[in-house]
Design a protein around this nucleic acid. Structure first.
Lengths: 352, 352
DNA sequence: GCAACGCGTCGAAGCGATTCGACGCCGGAA
DNA sequence: TTCCGGCGTCGAATCGCTTCGACGCGTTGC
C-alpha cells in the first residue's frame, strides 16, 4: 500500500487480497465473475474492497486484458452544424456508455483520420464512434484497418464493413413532403443546412435533399431547395431568393434547426402568417419544436435513440455477438400548429 | 510482434529496439528525451518507429509512469444551460489539450462527485477540469482529496486549494451597468438565466447578478432582475413582468444567450425599438452578437480563452510548476448597435 | 598522470492487473 | 472403494512500458 502525494493511500489488488486473506487472483475473479467464488469469500473480498476504498488501476487492467472500457467519440467542432443537436447525441452516448460501465474519450473531427488511428493504435479505446459522416468519408479506410469495432452516425457512400446508424433522412424528406402534399400544397420549398454542409458532402444533408426532391417529383409538386447560412442575414437572403423564385409557395420544409427562430421572426416581420399563408414542417429534435411561439409540425430527429444505439452497436460488437449492420430509423411526423391545408384561393404572391 | 485480430501487427517497443539494434530502454529514452541519445542512434530509432508503425501502448505507459496523458472534463448536460456556450468551452479545451499531447475524457455532471472520484481513483486521468460550478460545489471536497490537479471553470464559495478560472462576472455585471449609466439610462433591468440556474446556485449567475445590482446601486439607478426560462413563452412572460414593474425602463442587460433572438423578435413584435426606446447589452460569446438582425453591444464571454486557460493551468500543475490560483478575466465591452443614449424626453411607458 | 565527471547505452526490476494451469477437496457414478 | 469432474483457490507468467543503477569510454581539471 503505497502513499502517493496528497492523495490517499493507493490501494492495489494485493492489498485487498491480503486484507481478505486470499490471493490476488481470487480477488480478480471475484470482481470479474469469470470463475466462481464461494459466497463466503466473495463477501469477505467485497468488504475489504469497501473498507480500503479499492479502485482497479485502469492502465494495469488495460495492459493485462487488452480492454480499456473506453469508447472514442469523434465529434465535429464546426459551428455550421447545429451545436445543440450534436450535444444531444453526445449526451445520449455518454449516458449509454456509462450504463455499460464504459467511458468516452473525446476526439475532434479536426484531427482527421490520423486522430482515429492514434487513439486506436495506442489502445486508448476499444471502439470508435464517429459523428458528422461525409459521403466519401476519409476515415472509413482507417477505421476499417483498425481491427476494432466502429460505428458511424450517418452513412457514407462506401460503408464497407462498418456499422452505421442514423435517422432515415431520405424517408424523412419524403415524409415531410408527403404531409404537405396531403394538405393540398403544390408549390413547396426546402430550407436546408448551410451551403458549406452540402459542399462537404455531409451524409444526412444529401440524403434528406434526395428524399425531398424525389417525393416532390412523385407528387408532381414544384419544389426547390435553398441552403441557408445560420444567421439572421442568411435567413433573409434565403427568403428573398425563395419568394423571388416561387412567389406562390405555400409549404416550407426546414432542415436547419439553427434558423428556426430567426425564420419565424422574419416571417412575422414580413407579415407572412404561419400556417395560414405558409405551412412549415421542421426537421429537428422534438424538444426544439416548442419555444418558438408556435408549436411546429415536425419530423423528429431521434438524437437520444441514435446516440444510444450507436453505443449499443459498438458494445455488441465488442461482445463478439453481432456483425456490422446499417440501421436507419424510420421517421416520425408529429402534426402540430405550423401546418394547415393549402390556401383554397390562390395565395397572394409574396413580393419583396 | 503479435498479430491481433484483423488489425495490423501489434508493434511493441521491443520490436522497435530489435529493428534499430538497441535496447528497449534506449528507445524509451529516445522517445521521452529524459536521457541524451546520440543523434545517430536517435535517427535509427525514429526510422524504425516509422517503418514499423509503432504506437506506444497507452495502458502500459500509464502503468509504468503513472501518467495517462488524459484530462478528465466534467460537462453539464442540462438543457437549461446554453449548450453552444458549453460546446465552445469544450472545443477550446480539447484543442488546447491536444497541443500538450493530451486527450480528454468526457464525464457528465450527472455522475456527481462519485464520477470524479471513480475516474481519478482508477487513474484514468491525470487532472480534472470541472464546468458548471455551483456556489457550494459538492465536488470540491472530493477534488481536494484526490491529490491530483483540478481546475474549476467558475468559482465556488469555498475554492479551498483548487484552481479556478472564469470571466470576472461580477465585473462584467458592473461593466454592463456602467455603460448604460454613461449613456444616461436611469431605469434598467437584467434579463437573467433560468430560475433553475439561480436555484442551483450556479456560480456565474450569482456573481453577475451581484455585480449588476451593486453597480446599479452605486449609480443610483432603478434596477431589477428577471430570471428567464429559455423559450418564447418565457421571454414574453419576462417582458410582461418587466414592463409592468418598470414601464419606464430604457436599458436591458441580457445574461442569457439562448433567448437573444426570441427577445429581439418579441420586442419588434411589440414595436419597442432597439436601441431608440430600449438599449440592450448582451452578455455572450462574441460570435453570438451577430445573427440577430442587429449587432448587439456586448460584454464578451471569452469561452475560448477560458477553456484554453483551464487546460494550461492543469498542465502547469502537472508539470510541478505553479500553485493553485484563481484567475478572473477582465470583462471586455464592445459597443455595437443595440445601445444608444437614453431617450431625452420621457419615453412612452410600455403597457401590455 | 590520475581522479572525477558526463555521455550514451544496457539490463533488470517494477508498475497492477488478468489469466492459465494446477491442485486439493468433496460428491456422485460406476 | 475408486475414479472422475466440478468447484474454489492459488501461484506464476504475462501484458508493454519506464526508470534506476551500472558500466565503459572519452574529456577535463589539477
Amino acid at each position: 500500500m503505497r502513499f502517493d502525494g496528497e492523495g490517499g493511500p493507493v490501494v492495489t489488488i494485493s492489498d485487498v487480497a491480503r486484507d481478505a486473506g486470499v490471493s490476488p487472483s481470487t480477488v480478480s475473479y471475484a470482481l470479474s465473475g469469470k470463475r466462481s467464488i464461494s459466497t463466503e469469500t466473495r463477501h469477505r473480498i467485497e468488504a475489504s474492497i469497501r473498507r480500503l476504498g479499492y479502485h482497479p488501476h485502469a492502465g494495469a487492467r488495460a495492459l493485462a486484458s487488452s480492454r480499456t472500457n473506453v469508447l472514442a467519440l469523434v465529434v465535429p467542432l464546426r459551428m455550421d452544424l447545429n451545436v445543440p443537436v450534436v450535444m444531444q447525441f453526445v449526451g445520449a452516448a455518454v449516458t449509454a456508455a456509462r450504463a455499460y460501465d464504459h467511458d468516452l474519450l473525446l476526439l475532434t473531427k479536426d484531427e482527421g483520420p490520423e486522430g482515429v488511428r492514434r487513439v486506436s493504435a495506442s489502445a486508448m479505446a476499444d471502439a470508435v464512434i464517429v459523428m458528422d459522416v461525409e459521403a466519401s468519408e476519409p476515415r472509413v479506410p482507417v477505421l476499417q484497418s483498425l481491427g476494432r469495432p466502429a460505428v458511424l452516425i450517418g452513412v457514407p457512400d462506401q460503408p464497407r464493413d462498418l456499422s452505421c446508424v442514423d435517422l432515415d433522412f431520405t424517408a424523412a424528406g419524403a415524409t415531410a413532403v408527403h404531409h404537405l402534399a396531403e394538405l393540398g400544397h403544390r408549390d413547396i420549398a426546402l430550407l436546408g443546412p448551410s451551403p458549406a454542409v452540402y459542399e462537404r458532402g455531409t451524409s444526412y444533408a444529401g440524403r434528406f435533399l434526395r428524399g425531398f426532391t424525389s417525393a416532390a417529383d412523385r407528387h408532381r409538386m414544384a419544389a426547390h431547395s435553398y441552403p441557408c447560412v445560420p444567421s439572421y442575414e442568411g435567413v433573409r437572403t434565403c427568403l428573398d431568393e425563395l419568394f423571388r423564385t416561387q412567389p406562390m409557395a405555400t409549404g416550407l420544409v426546414v432542415h436547419n434547426e439553427a434558423v428556426l427562430s430567426a425564420l419565424l421572426a422574419e416571417l412575422s416581420a414580413r407579415r407572412i402568417s404561419v400556417p395560414q399563408r405558409l405551412s412549415i414542417v421542421a426537421v429537428c429534435p422534438d424538444d426544439m419544436v416548442e419555444n418558438h411561439g408556435l408549436a411546429l409540425t415536425s419530423v423528429a430527429i431521434p438524437t437520444a435513440e441514435v446516440g444510444q444505439l450507436a453505443v449499443e452497436m459498438a458494445m455488441r460488437q465488442l461482445g463478439g455477438i453481432g456483425q456490422p449492420e446499417i440501421r436507419l430509423l424510420s421517421p416520425r411526423l408529429t402534426v402540430r400548429d405550423s401546418t394547415a391545408p393549402a390556401p383554397a384561393d390562390l395565395p397572394e404572391p409574396v413580393n419583396n
